[in-house]
């Protein structure tokens, strides 16, 4: 009996400063709900959602994390095996943008992915529903940052008004799927056979 195709589970980790709207984005995406009340996330929690990406049904496992340092007691096991990392900042808070670098570096260190240079990140600038005068980080600045980090996809979102959330997560899922496929490739890829060295030993030679 042929082995049935395994369901693809994509592990996505959401990182960013406290209060930028990580939990809200996730709730908006998964539950289509938004609450104005702030409640700090403690530790981490995950929600799952089934989505169709390029005609494939995949399960996204979204790991929401605590932005507040005092709640960051998660072990490296939490970061490992991630297929995509979503960095979130608040467009009205310049500091949350400046810390993106260290979130990214910290994630890379903790997760130590096989190919750190091409690991998929996605940047979300949240809370664009507020008035323009409050905005502290321009779209250009964010785009420049993304370019300097190897063309990270960038979305300006609002969890409150559900702007761009669906599109952003669709991209996240797609990029995670690519990463997942690469990991599988790494995991199942047998050692290369050195043709030049010992091909004769491995296969023998026809003597006729």
């Amino acid at each position: 009996m042929p082995q049935p195709k395994k369901t693809v589970l994509l592990k996505v980790i959401i990182l960013g400063d406290s209060g930028v709207g990580k939990t809200s984005l996730m709730n908006q995406y998964v539950n289509k709900r938004f609450s104005n009340q702030y409640k700090a996330t403690i530790g981490a929690d995950f929600l799952t959602k089934e989505v169709v990406v390029d005609d494939r049904v995949v399960t996204i496992q979204l790991w929401d994390t605590a932005g507040q340092e005092r709640f960051q007691s998660l072990g490296v096991a939490f970061y490992r095996g991630a297929d995509c990392c979503v960095l979130v900042y608040d467009v009205n808070n310049a500091k949350s943008f400046e810390t993106l670098d260290s979130w990214r570096d910290e994630f890379l260190i903790q997760a130590s992915p096989q190919d750190p240079v091409n690991f998929p990140f996605v940047l979300l600038g949240n809370k664009i529903d507020t008035e323009d005068s409050k905005r502290a980080v321009s779209q250009k600045k964010a785009t420049n940052w993304c370019q300097s980090k190897g063309n990270i996809p960038y979305f300006e979102t609002s969890a409150k008004e559900a702007i761009n959330v669906e599109q952003a997560f669709q991209t996240i899922a797609r990029n995670a799927l690519v990463q997942e496929a690469e990991v599988e490739l790494y995991a199942n890829y047998p050692d290369p056979i050195r043709i030049d060295q010992d091909s004769s030993q491995s296969y023998g030679r026809c003597e006729c």
Binding site: S102, E106, I109, P116
Partner: peptide, 12 residues
């Protein structure tokens, strides 16, 4: 093993 991560470590 991961020369690309050296930068991340150094920056943090």
């Amino acid at each position: 093993t991961r020369p690309a991560l050296v930068g991340s470590l150094c920056r943090l």
